[in-house]
Design a protein around this nucleic acid. Structure first.
Lengths: 347, 347
DNA sequence: TTGAAAGCGCTACCAT
DNA sequence: ATGGTAGCGCTTTCAA
């Protein structure tokens, strides 16, 4: 059995309260006692008992804010499910989630959401937000005031974030390349449809994809790179036009959203099931295309797990000050027709 | 905040001890009080607090036996890692694992291991064992004596097992078929190498595979089905012979162990990287073949997760009498060269 | 049949 | 600067 505070107190010949103060760096302890206690804690390999921690924490429950651009975006539905699962598993500690769904990536909206969360008394915040100076400043300010923030799903440039929980976009791009290699097309002529060239994740997905193809020594060509702003209509129109203009294309790579539009265009061009579409995530649109045989495989990023992890890490940090890893990278998951309907976020 | 025993006691006008007795069906409570308490518990939606449960459980820690044919079998190494991770996460409750590694599937050895675990005071057992009458009888007997057993990785015919934690072999076979379809060979001529036709999991992997190919309307033929008894040497010799005799074969399907032997045979036949080998799990042997390009894809069954889950479910059952699901099926995971070195069992 | 109380490990607060 | 103690929710044991 692990050593307890009581053990340390006994060994050091002081009271439990004193040990507690030392362990929490709360001060008010004379240096030599402090030294002795720390020494003993080390020797006895003291690890706070999480059950006891939790019980005691019930007195002032933790609130975790959750900022997600989830309105109208099914991808984040899964993230929310994961976060709620974490909330449930932490409900014994009185932990509660403060959800703050917003629509899209409007900076002002995100800033407002952050403000609201602080007003509602969030002790910590998990946020999938935009990497712009204003937001970073707001996050820094929150951190100053003792409200830690975990970046969720989209990484932020340095701004005092506690951690990044999300996927490695370059890596998912490489995996998509691996799937293309598996499919054995020779010298594929690619049409790339990206969300936006200003979105870091999309760029990384494209560069990782191309990087891997080059590495493999596979002959291939990129006929065109279309930017659709994550919009299905734009994706539809632009893709259809490109397919007509470049009939030699024989594979589509969709790095961002807009897959539904791409699917429509491919169908209209009479190429459904003939010209493979490589896609990401398993939103309902992607899933439908997989079932139709238009998308042979999709590379997913465990959104459920991301939501779950972010909330859990924040909880641990808030209750036991245990530092989360700087980056927690979700395991990429390959889905094809035969496993896309598998539940992956039961827990 | 959820209702506590104290709340119920106050509402019912009795003491906490009485409520506790009712809630645990320990008897010694007059019917009308019992009725009232149960009623109140229902109304107030009483849910025992797991943190408190854990704290109190520290007084008599739970021991969970773990019977695995892990000696010399790297697959089970991952299962053990998962189980140990669960043990660690439960160490705050004083839970300890009693590992009992055995070599292979020798019935007598497994029976002995079960006996040992009981002697060492296991409160519950997770076992990857063989589905034979003697073992089933031993498990029934254990259950009678109040030691529940969870079948891990290999399902058992009904014998009073608490639950099955493992994969759906048929399903993994179907996924392997999906990968073959993806690879776009036309009319593949298959050589099937199975472990043993007496092993349920292997049979299901083969039948699921063929079933899916038929469903897809894919023309294909099975040139031969080789049985290698999960032995690399046998697999090597038999495969090599078959490859020479049946040069028209253009794809190998390895349903059980012995992949290493198959790989050697393929190399010796000068077909490495030319003739795809579909395999299962990601043991070091499979991993090496994936890196060499001999195995384009392998279907894995989250062994880490299986070990983790089994222990967690047993713990919950032992401490809060919460019934685990009858079957907990691991998510199948597709691995290709680009994601096979990904950690998947961090936690 | 029921009540009362101790104790699991930790935190927070009051008293010294 | 330090000690003592109540209390988080639950189980268990002893007393009535």
């Amino acid at each position: 059995m692990a050593a307890t505070i009581k053990d340390i107190a006994a060994a050091a010949g002081v009271s439990r309260g004193t040990v507690d103060r030392v362990l929490h760096g709360r001060g008010g302890v004379c240096p030599e006692v402090k030294e002795r206690v720390l020494q003993l804690a080390e020797e006895l390999e003291y690890r706070p008992n999480r059950a006891a921690l939790g019980l005691a924490a019930l007195k002032k429950p933790v609130r975790i804010g959750l900022l997600l651009p989830s309105e109208g975006n099914p991808f984040f539905g899964e993230v929310i499910r994961g976060a709620k699962a974490a909330e449930k598993s932490l409900s014994d500690y009185g932990t509660a989630l403060l959800p703050e769904p917003v629509r899209g990536y409007d900076t002002a909206g995100h800033l407002r959401a952050l403000r609201l969360l602080e007003e509602r008394g969030a002790d910590g915040v998990c946020a999938a937000t935009v990497d712009v100076p204003e937001v970073r400043a707001a996050i820094s300010a929150l951190a100053e005031r003792g409200v830690p923030v975990i970046a969720l799903n989209s990484e932020l440039s340095p701004c005092g974030c506690l951690s990044y929980v999300g996927c490695d976009y370059r890596q998912t791009g490489r995996i998509a390349a691996g799937l293309l290699l598996l499919m054995g097309l020779d010298a594929p002529r690619l049409l790339i449809v990206t969300g936006s060239k200003r979105v870091r994740g999309h760029n990384e997905r494209v560069s990782g994809f191309l990087e891997r193809l080059r590495e493999a020594g596979k002959p291939f060509s990129v006929l065109e790179e279309i930017e659709c702003e994550d919009d299905d209509e734009a994706a539809y129109a632009l893709t259809l036009e490109a397919l007509r203009r470049l009939p030699q294309a024989d594979c589509l790579y969709v790095a961002g959203a807009g897959v539904q539009g791409v699917g429509r265009a491919v169908r209209e061009a009479g190429l459904l099931g003939k010209e493979p579409i490589l896609a990401f995530d398993d939103t309902p649109a992607v899933r439908a295309l997989v079932h139709e045989g238009a998308v042979p495989a999709t590379v997913c990023q465990s959104p459920f797990e991301q939501g779950y992890r972010a909330v859990k890490l924040m909880f641990r940090y808030l209750t036991s000050r245990s530092e989360p890893p700087k980056r927690w990278i979700a395991t990429p998951v390959i889905k094809i027709r035969e496993n896309i309907d598998e539940g992956d976020g039961s827990r």
